[in-house]
């Protein structure tokens, strides 16, 4: 079984870290990731840019683009895509395509990645 492990923390606190503190936190995590990678168990790893860089697409008859991250508590995270886009505009168009293909309501939060490692898992 594949498991996704999603990271949550206060962005305001991590944002108040010094560069050295941030690097130390990443280095500690890297040790664990390395072990998993060598065992062939690690899939993609991504670090997202802060939510200040996020844009949200609210699905519906007419999709609405909103600045900022997904903020509802009544909807839950169902899944995610990592897509290569030339611009935010293209990312929004891609999300709209995905939105049209699904009958549900809900949102897509579009968040640029700061770091992406494809990982060791095969297709």
């Amino acid at each position: 079984m594949l498991y996704a492990i999603l990271c949550y923390d206060s962005e305001q606190v991590t944002g108040a870290w010094t560069k050295e503190q941030d690097a130390a936190a990443i280095a500690n995590l890297e040790v664990v990731q390395d072990k998993l990678r060598k065992a062939g168990r690690l899939g993609p790893v991504a670090r997202l840019m802060p939510t200040t860089a996020a844009t949200t697409l609210r699905k519906g008859k007419e999709a609405v683009v909103l600045d900022g991250p997904f903020a509802e508590t009544k909807e839950q995270l169902l899944g995610f895509y990592v897509v290569d886009c030339a611009s935010l505009e293209e990312a929004i168009e891609t999300a709209k395509d995905l939105g049209r293909a699904s009958s549900s309501n809900g949102c897509f939060e579009i968040r640029p990645l700061m770091l992406f490692k494809p990982g060791a898992l095969g297709a």
Partner: peptide, 16 residues
Amino acid sequence: RDLMAEGLALLDKAIR
């Protein structure tokens, strides 16, 4: 490049 990427992403948002 991380800071630059974030700056470019924010500019993209603003221009919209």
